[in-house]
Nucleic acid binder design. Structure first.
Lengths: 118, 118
DNA sequence: ATCATATATTCCTATATCGGAATGTGTCAA
DNA sequence: TTGACACATTCCGATATAGGAATATATGAT
């Protein structure tokens, strides 16, 4: 039977790839230096297949690059692929610039702006 | 039976909430002005229940605020909640600053850096 | 060729998630 | 109170996804 409304593919863009906490950890870890899969496994304490699968997702969306080195495969994050996310969040930047007063207010316990109770 | 390894809750943080394209549309639309649910429905051409459900997710993670106004409920995005995403992406900023040459290279068709063929 | 190491893939299962349809709740007006 | 309008929730079915375990592939060493 033909699927009525196929669910949108999820792990096929950077936003979704990054939604997974472990994948963010991996990206953080690979930001400065390239690392082998084994390094990631021991550093983050994850199962090896799990790491490989996450790397696969990250690679498919271009967030990491891989290079074989002997029996090791070295990965490093590709910061350019993160840029679109940065640009999107940046469109909201103007709202939190010069808002030290608001930050102060929240620090004082005032959770929400007046009128917004939900 | 107790679930062996419960999958991590997903729609419970901003990263996941924002991973859904429609939710980003909504956030964009609500960035400048508060809008009613009906406005969002007609503007984005989505089903009303769908919009309500997305708004629910966004509200639960604090990305939007709601205020009742007669029979309408006005929503607006809460930019502060987007800030953590911005901060995270920003940690990669240093890698793409002053990289006009790279951008140029890619425009010339050189997809990946030398050595990274995967 | 064989073995060990490093990494990738496949299979399976439980759960999460989305959309659609139907229904529920709240608010204003007459 | 009844009805209309605005929005929210629930139920359903299809699919996506993550983790675990097992297995496959690739490379280097002997």
């Amino acid at each position: 039977m033909i699927p009525l409304v196929p669910r949108a593919a999820t792990t096929s863009d950077a936003f979704n790839a990054v939604a997974e906490p472990r994948r963010r950890q991996i990206l953080n870890y690979l930001a400065d230096t390239e690392r082998s899969v084994g390094d990631i496994v021991s550093r983050l304490g994850l199962e090896q297949p799990s790491v490989s699968k996450h790397l696969r997702v990250l690679r498919d969306v271009g967030l990491v690059r891989a290079k074989r080195h002997g029996r090791h495969v070295m990965y490093r994050t590709n910061p350019d692929a993160i840029r679109p996310l940065h640009e999107w969040t940046k469109t909201f930047e103007r709202f939190w610039v010069h808002q030290l007063t608001r930050i102060k207010e929240r620090a004082e316990g005032k959770g929400r702006e007046p009128g917004y109770d939900r």
